[in-house]
Simulated scan of single mutants.
Amino acid sequence: MSGPGQLAFAFPPAVSYAEADFVPAAASAEARAWLARWPGWPSGRLALWGPEGAGKSHLAAIWAARAQAAVLPAAALDSAEPPALLGAARHVAVEDGDRIAGAAAERGLLHLLNLVAEGGGTVLLTGRRPPARWPVRLADLRSRLAAAAAVAIAAPDEALLAAVLAKALADRQLAAAPGVAAYLVRRLPRSFAAMQAAAAWLDRASLGSGRRIGRALAAELVALHDNRGS
Rank of each mutant, 00 (worst) to 15 (best):
M1W: 13
P4Q: 11
G5V: 12
L7S: 05
L7M: 02
F9C: 06
A10N: 07
F11E: 13
P13L: 05
P13T: 12
P13Q: 08
V15E: 07
V15I: 08
S16R: 09
A18D: 13
E19T: 10
F22P: 00
V23K: 02
V23F: 01
P24N: 01
P24S: 05
A27F: 07
S28V: 14
A29Q: 13
A29K: 11
A31G: 01
A36N: 04
P42A: 03
S43K: 13
G44S: 02
G44Q: 01
L46A: 10
L46C: 08
L48W: 07
P51S: 00
G53A: 00
G55N: 08
K56R: 11
L59P: 04
A61C: 12
W63H: 11
W63E: 09
A65G: 15
Q68T: 10
A69N: 09
A69R: 04
V71E: 02
P73F: 01
A74Q: 06
A80Q: 13
P83D: 01
P83E: 04
A84Q: 14
L85P: 10
L86N: 01
A89V: 09
A89T: 12
R90F: 11
R90K: 13
H91N: 07
A93N: 03
E95S: 06
E95A: 10
E95Y: 00
D96R: 09
G97N: 06
G97T: 00
G102P: 07
A103P: 15
L110G: 12
L112A: 13
V116D: 10
A117W: 09
E118I: 07
G119C: 08
T126L: 06
P131S: 02
P131N: 01
A132H: 08
R133C: 14
W134K: 02
P135R: 08
L141P: 03
R142Y: 03
R142W: 03
S143Q: 03
A147Q: 02
A147R: 06
A150K: 04
I153D: 01
I153P: 05
A155G: 05
A159K: 10
A159W: 03
A159V: 14
L160F: 11
L160C: 08
V164Y: 05
K167N: 09
K167D: 13
A168K: 05
A170F: 05
D171A: 12
D171V: 08
D171G: 04
Q173H: 14
V185Y: 00
P189G: 07
P189S: 05
F192T: 10
A193T: 14
A194H: 07
A194P: 01
Q196K: 14
A198H: 05
A200I: 09
R204W: 09
A205Y: 03
S206N: 06
G208Y: 11
R211M: 15
R211H: 14
R212K: 06
I213K: 13
I213T: 07
G214V: 06
L217W: 04
A218T: 10
A219R: 13
L221C: 04
A223R: 11
H225F: 11
N227Q: 15
